[in-house]
Simulated assay, not measured.
Amino acid sequence: MADDEVNITRDGTADETTIQWRWDASTSRTVRLLWAFGVGTFFAAIVTVICWRLYRMAGEVAGGFGRAVVIALIIALAATVLALAASSDTERHLKRITRQLPINVPSETSLDRAMDAAVGTVVMGVIIGMLMGIGRYVSQNELLAVGAGPFTGLAALLLPLALVALVLASFLQSVGALDYEEQMIYLYEPEQTIDLAVIEVVSTRQFGDVVVVKLSYAQPDNQYIQGPRRIVVPPEVAHKLQSPIEHRMA
């Protein structure tokens, strides 16, 4: 078996009889996007409310100039976040920006998650802001009989969708090992063990770069076999799990 066939993730290790994997926001694009969308939407909703209040206060205090300053600051912060996210050395640039502040810059995985959340906040903030702005324009100019309702409704709908995305991101995370020699699957977080000898049928459904595997257990002497009925694994692991079982049952 070639090394590149069993080296599932950059955090995983493998030999000729074992595949180990860790599928989370740092290794799965699907989980990462779901997490960034969920967290970013909630943060964006909070930031949108704060920015709107600042915009109105600035307008009351300094008129059009105050509003322009607030808009410029928002654009500058958003551009800074996107520039940091696009940089090949985010940690160094972030340290340079915050060197005068009593802030400890996170490193590696923590920094990646922080930048994902920040980018998600910017993107979803733009979307929410556009929906609210269009709704306000439509309402003020009486372009639709229902007013701003459809646009504010879409913006509000993003919050439950974000919650669903976070639940999915949590469900689609997986850490485990497939041992060919022992014919066992070892799952962690939570810890579970699956004996491949009692698996009769395996069916799969892929979501992005994540595969949900449905397991059907044998019932010798009508005895119920305990174990998870669905597990989440990378596509490569799903293929290597499915092949020997189908060959055995053929």
Rank of each mutant, 00 (worst) to 15 (best):
I231K: 04
L168T: 09
E236A: 15
F207C: 03
G38V: 02
R53H: 10
D89W: 10
Q219K: 12
S110W: 00
G208V: 04
Y137E: 11
G64A: 15
L54I: 08
Q192M: 15
F65M: 15
I50A: 14
L196M: 15
P160Y: 00
L172I: 03
T109F: 04
R22Q: 13
V69M: 13
P228H: 01
A86I: 04
S243T: 14
P190I: 08
I103C: 11
A79P: 00
A148Y: 06
I225A: 08
W21E: 00
A2M: 10
T48R: 03
R53M: 10
R229G: 11
G208S: 07
R53N: 10
V202E: 03
V39W: 02
L54E: 09
T27A: 07
D3P: 07
N141H: 15
G59E: 04
G59M: 04
E182M: 14
L163V: 14
D15H: 06
S110K: 08
V119H: 04
V202A: 11
S174Q: 04
L196I: 11
F42T: 04
V119E: 04
L82R: 07
Y186D: 10
L158C: 11
Y180F: 15
A45L: 05
A79R: 01
M1P: 10
N104I: 10
W21H: 05
V212T: 14
A36T: 14
L84V: 13
N104V: 12
D179C: 06
I71Y: 09
S26H: 11
T109N: 12
R32Q: 13
M57F: 13
V201M: 11
I97R: 11
Y186F: 12
A76S: 12
F207P: 04
V213R: 00
P228A: 13
V105A: 05
I245V: 11
R136N: 12
I103T: 05
G133D: 08
A44N: 04
V233R: 06
A25P: 06
D195I: 04
I127T: 12
D112M: 09
S26A: 13
V39R: 01
K95I: 03
A78L: 00
A79Q: 01
H247M: 10
A44L: 05
Y224N: 14
Q206D: 06
E189N: 13
A114S: 09
G135R: 00
P244L: 02
A45R: 05
H93I: 07
A238L: 05
G64E: 13
T152M: 08
A117F: 00
S216F: 03
L111C: 10
A177L: 09
Q173F: 02
L168V: 10
L196V: 11
T30R: 09
D112E: 11
P160M: 01
A44F: 02
T41R: 02
N104M: 04
I245P: 01
V39E: 03
G125M: 00
S216M: 08
A145Y: 07
G40N: 01
D179M: 07
V164D: 11
D89I: 04
